[in-house]
Nucleic acid binder design. Structure first.
Length: 811
DNA sequence: ACCTACACTATTTTT
DNA sequence: TAGTGTAGGT
C-alpha cells in the first residue's frame, strides 16, 4: 500500500487513444458503444446508469480489469463496493477470470466488510480494541430491550423495536445522541427518555467494545473526519473507488465515499501550515481518487432502511463534471417483459425517463392467473413449474417471488405435495437460531470479554441454576471491584452465593479460560488455523451445552445438535479459506455473511425468495405471486412517504428478473393472521398493457363465475383462452370486506398433512390415490422423507408423488 | 430457579 | 395463526 510503488499511468485522462491496439482491446469485445465508454472512460467521476439486465456487472468487472491490465492501478489501489457478500465474491471471481492472479490484493467487499477492515486497524484511535465484535440487529434489540425496561420507557410509548429503528435511522443520517438532543423537543418527556436511551445504548456498545451494523459505517466516517491524517492514508491508498448498487446507499455510506474521494491532504491543511512551513507542500497537488458509481434509481428498494435515492439522482451535482453513461439495452429479457416493466415504472412521476429495449424479439406473452385461494395459486405455480420442466427448463432456472416471507408457506406446502424440489433463499436464518447465537456468544465471551451481553447470555445456558439473583450479584461484584463481568466469574467464592452455584460459576470460568488458551495465543504467536473450531468444540462440549441438548426429549433438540455440528463445520471451512484467521475474524465474517448457505445447492431446485432478495438475480422463468393490493403495494407502505413508489420499483425489480417467461399470479382470498380476507388485484396489473398478458384465469373469471368452475388443474379450458377475457371493468368494484364466508373457494389443505412415512412401496405395487384413483408404481427414488413414487395412473397418466404426504393407500 | 399455562400482540423488506 | 412474554405455581 505504499505510494512509492505507484504504477505508470498509461492512458492519460483525456488523451485520445493513439493508433494501435489498446492493451485492453479484448476486454471490449461484445460490448455496445455505451458499455465500451463505461469501461474506458477515465476521469474523476463516472456515473453509469444501468437499467436492469444491461450488463452492468460485466462493465464493472471489465473496467477494473482494464485499469489493472493497463497498469493504471495496482490491485491494492482498487476499492470496489458491492451490496452483498455474494456479489463481491462473484465480482472477484470474474475479475480474476479476466486477468488472473493480478487480481490479488483488491478490496472487493460490502460497505460493512470494508469498514470492519478499516476499524480493525484504527480501533485503538478512539477507545476500542482490535478485538471488537459486531452486534447484529438481534443483539442490539436485546440490548435496547434491556434499556427500555430499565427506564420504564414503555410507559411513554417507546417500544424496543421503535427505539431501535429510530436509532438506526439517526445513525444512517450520521446523527448521534448529542446532536439529536440539540434539535429535539426536550420538553416532551418521551423525547428526553429516548435521548437517554440512545446515549446509554451507545455507551453500552463502547463498553462492550462492540459496533452495531450502522456504527460500522458511521464510525469510520467519524474517524476520517476527526483524524484527517488517517483518512489520507486511505485516500492515497484507494485511487479507484467503484460502488455498485449506488441507488441503495444511505447517507452515511454516501458520506464515507465522499470522504474517501477528497484530495489527500486537503483537510489537514491548517495542521500542515501552522508552523509557518508547508510541511505537506508536495501533496497539495495530489488528486482525488477517481470514483465510479453504478446504479439504477428505478431499482432503489431500500429507502425503508435509509437508502437515499438522491445519492444517485444528484450525483452530477455532488461531483461536478462527472461523466454519465446510460445503459439502456437489455440483454436479459424479451420485449414483452420489458414493455410491461417499462409501462409499470413509468407511473413513477419523479423519475428520469428511461426505456429498456432489446433486440431479441417479443417472446412469449406474460401469463396471468387468478386463484381462488393462495393454495390454488400455489398449485398453479407448481403445475406450471412441472410443465416447464417437461419442456426442458431446469428447475434451477425457475424462481418464485413473493412480497412477504409468510407467503412462502402455502407455496411450500403445495410444492412438497407435488414433489417439486425447491429451495427457500434467504429465509433460513441459520445464524439467528437460538443455539447458534448461544454458541457464538460463547466465542464472543472468549474473544471479547468486554462484551457483557454475550457473557450474560451464556451464563445459564445450559441450565446451571444461575438465575436473576446470581446474575445481579455478579454484576454488583464486578462494579464494586471495578472489573469486567467476565472477570468477576473467576472469583465465584466472593459473590456471596451458595456453594452449588459457586461451583457452577467456577466451572464456566474454567471452560472459558481453557478455550481462551486454545484460541488466543500470546501476542506474536500464531494460533493454529484449527483453533477456532477446536475451541468451539471445547466450549460446547465442556460447558455441557451439547450434552444438555442430547439429554432433552424435545425432538427439536436433535436438530439443534446438528446445527451446532454444522457451525463447527463452518469454522473448519473458515480455517481452510483463512489459514491465519482468528476467532475475531470468524465472528466478523459470521456477523456480516447472513446468506452463507447461498452458494450451495440451489441447483436442481426451484428458488423461492422475496422480491428484495431477488435483486441482482435472473431466471428463465419467473413467477411473481400475490400480485394483490395490500401485498404489493404492501398496505403498510401506503402511509409512508414515497412508499407506493418504492413498491412499484420493487415490483419492477421482480418483473425484470425474468429472461423468457413471466407469470403474474394472485389469489382472490388469502388467509392471513388466521382470518380469510378478500384480495383485490394489484394496481400494478392495471398498469400493464392488456395485450401483453394472456390470462389463464383472470380476476374477472373468478369473480363472475363463482367458485364451482375451474380450479388450477383444469383452468386451461377454452373459456380462459381468449385475449379478450381481460378483467378490465371487473377489477374495480370488488368490495373490500374484512372477512367473508368464501369458504367454498378456500380450497384449503387439511390442517395436518398426512404422514405415510413408513409406507413400503415397490415397483409393481398397486395403489389408490384420493384424486387420481388407482395406478401402478413404476419406480421409487429418494430416501426417507423425500422418497418419491413414480406412478402410472389408470386414468390420469404418469404422476410423481411424495410418498410421505401423498393421499394414497396401498392396495 | 424452573416450568407451565395462558394471554397477548404483532404481523415488510435486511447488509 | 404463531410466537413471545408474563404470572403463578411447584
Amino acid at each position: 500500500m505504499t505510494d512509492s510503488s505507484a504504477p505508470l499511468i498509461v492512458g492519460s485522462d483525456r488523451g485520445p487513444q493513439a493508433s494501435g491496439v489498446r492493451p485492453d482491446e479484448d476486454l471490449l469485445t461484445g460490448l455496445n458503444p455505451p458499455q465500451r465508454e463505461a469501461v474506458i472512460y477515465r476521469g474523476p467521476a463516472l456515473l453509469i446508469v444501468a437499467g436492469a439486465g444491461s450488463g452492468k456487472t460485466s462493465v464493472l468487472t471489465r473496467r477494473i480489469a482494464s485499469l489493472l491490465r493497463g497498469r493504471e492501478a495496482w490491485p491494492s489501489q482498487i476499492l470496489a463496493i458491492t451490496f452483498t457478500n455474494k456479489a463481491a465474491g462473484e465480482m472477484r471471481e470474474r475479475v480474476s477470470h479476466l486477468i488472473g492472479d493480478r487480481a490479488q490484493g483488491m478490496w472487493i467487499s460490502t460497505f460493512h466488510s470494508a469498514c470492519v477492515r478499516i476499524l480493525r486497524r484504527e480501533a485503538e484511535q478512539f477507545g476500542f480494541t482490535k478485538a471488537f465484535t459486531i452486534y447484529d440487529s438481534g443483539d442490539s434489540r436485546a440490548l435496547i430491550k434491556r434499556l427500555v425496561k430499565e427506564h420504564e420507557a414503555d410507559s411513554f410509548g417507546l417500544t424496543p423495536a421503535g427505539v431501535q429503528s429510530r436509532i438506526s435511522k439517526l445513525k444512517n443520517e450520521l446523527a448521534d445522541a448529542e446532536s439529536y438532543a440539540r434539535q429535539a423537543n426536550l420538553s416532551d418527556p418521551a423525547e428526553r427518555i429516548f435521548v437517554d436511551l440512545f446515549t446509554e445504548y451507545q455507551r453500552a456498545l463502547q463498553k462492550a467494545n462492540a459496533f452495531d451494523f450502522d456504527d460500522l459505517i458511521g464510525q469510520v466516517v467519524y474517524l476520517f473526519r476527526a483524524f484527517p491524517h488517517i483518512a489520507d492514508v486511505y485516500r492515497r491508498r484507494f485511487r479507484h473507488i467503484l460502488v455498485d448498487e449506488y441507488q441503495d446507499t444511505n447517507h452515511a455510506q454516501y458520506a464515507l465515499i465522499h470522504e474517501l474521494t477528497r484530495p489527500p491532504g486537503s483537510d489537514s491543511g491548517p495542521v500542515a501550515s501552522s508552523g509557518g512551513m508547508m510541511i505537506f507542500d508536495d501533496r497539495e497537488t495530489e488528486e482525488a481518487s477517481s470514483l465510479t458509481v453504478v446504479g439504477d434509481s428505478d431499482q432503489s428498494i431500500y429507502a425503508f432502511r435509509g437508502a437515499d435515492i438522491r445519492n444517485i439522482t444528484e450525483f452530477e451535482r455532488d461531483y461536478p463534471g462527472a461523466k454519465v453513461v446510460l445503459l439502456e439495452q437489455n440483454y436479459r429479457s424479451t420485449q414483452n417483459i420489458l414493455s410491461a416493466a417499462n409501462a409499470v415504472i413509468s407511473n413513477n412521476f419523479d423519475r428520469k425517463d428511461k426505456k429498456l429495449w432489446t433486440d431479441v424479439g417479443e417472446g412469449e406473452k406474460i401469463v396471468g392467473f387468478t386463484g381462488y385461494s393462495q393454495h390454488d395459486e400455489a398449485q398453479f405455480v407448481a403445475d406450471e413449474v412441472e410443465v416447464l420442466r417437461r419442456a426442458g427448463t431446469d428447475y434451477s432456472e425457475m424462481a418464485v417471488f413473493y412480497r412477504t416471507n409468510s407467503q412462502s408457506r402455502a407455496l411450500e406446502e403445495i410444492f412438497i405435495r407435488s414433489a417439486v424440489p425447491y429451495k427457500i433463499m434467504g429465509g433460513t436464518k441459520f445464524y439467528e437460531r437460538a443455539e447458534i447465537k448461544d454458541a457464538l456468544a460463547y466465542l464472543v465471551a472468549v474473544a471479547n470479554p468486554a462484551d457483557e451481553m454475550a457473557v450474560r447470555r451464556i451464563l445459564n445456558k445450559p441450565r446451571r441454576g444461575i438465575g436473576d439473583v446470581t446474575e445481579t450479584a455478579i454484576a454488583r461484584y464486578a462494579a464494586d471491584e471495578g472489573i469486567t463481568f467476565r472477570d468477576a466469574l473467576a472469583n465465584s467464592s466472593a459473590l456471596g452465593v451458595g456453594p452449588k452455584i459457586q461451583a457452577a460459576i467456577a466451572q464456566l470460568d474454567a471452560v472459558l479460560a481453557e478455550a481462551s488458551d486454545i484460541m488466543l495465543p500470546a501476542t506474536g504467536e500464531l494460533a493454529p488455523s484449527t483453533s477456532v473450531a477446536d475451541g468451539l468444540q471445547v466450549l460446547l462440549g465442556k460447558s455441557g451445552y451439547t450434552d444438555a441438548l442430547r439429554a432433552s426429549r424435545d425432538p427439536q433438540d436433535e436438530a439443534r445438535v446438528e446445527n451446532l455440528d454444522e457451525l463447527v463445520a463452518v469454522a473448519r471451512e473458515f480455517a481452510r479459506n483463512n489459514p491465519e484467521g482468528t476467532v475475531i475474524d470468524f465472528l466478523a465474517e459470521v456477523a456480516l455473511v447472513s446468506d452463507a448457505d447461498d452458494l450451495e445447492d440451489a441447483s436442481g431446485s426451484v428458488s423461492l425468495m422475496t422480491m428484495h432478495t431477488a435483486k441482482g438475480l435472473e431466471y428463465d422463468a419467473v413467477f411473481v405471486t400475490g400480485v394483490e393490493e395490500d401485498l404489493i403495494p404492501h398496505r403498510i407502505s401506503a402511509n409512508e412517504p414515497g412508499g407506493p413508489q418504492e413498491e412499484r420499483r420493487l415490483f419492477y425489480v421482480g418483473v425484470t428478473r425474468a429472461r423468457k417467461r413471466l407469470y403474474l399470479s394472485l389469489a382472490m382470498t388469502r388467509a392471513q393472521f388466521g382470518e380469510v380476507t378478500v384480495a383485490m388485484p394489484s394496481r400494478f396489473l392495471q398498469e400493464i398493457p392488456s395485450d401483453l398478458v394472456h390470462w389463464r384465469q383472470s380476476p374477472g373469471d373468478v369473480n363472475s363465475r363463482g367458485g364451482t368452475r375451474s380450479r388450477a388443474l383444469n383452468a386451461r379450458g377454452p373459456g380462459a383462452q381468449s385475449g379478450g377475457s381481460r378483467y378490465g371493468d371487473d377489477l374495480v368494484p370488488l368490495p373490500r370486506r374484512e372477512s367473508t364466508n368464501l369458504d367454498k373457494f378456500a380450497n384449503r389443505l387439511p390442517a395436518k398433512l398426512r404422514d405415510n412415512g413408513d409406507m413400503e412401496l415397490a415397483p409393481g405395487d398397486r395403489i389408490r390415490h384420493e384424486n387420481y384413483g388407482e395406478g401402478r408404481v413404476d419406480m421409487i427414488t429418494g430416501e426417507g422423507a423425500k422418497r418419491i413414487a413414480y406412478v402410472k395412473f389408470d386414468s390420469h397418466g404418469q404422476k410423481k408423488l411424495l410418498i410421505k404426504v401423498a393421499p394414497i393407500e396401498k392396495l
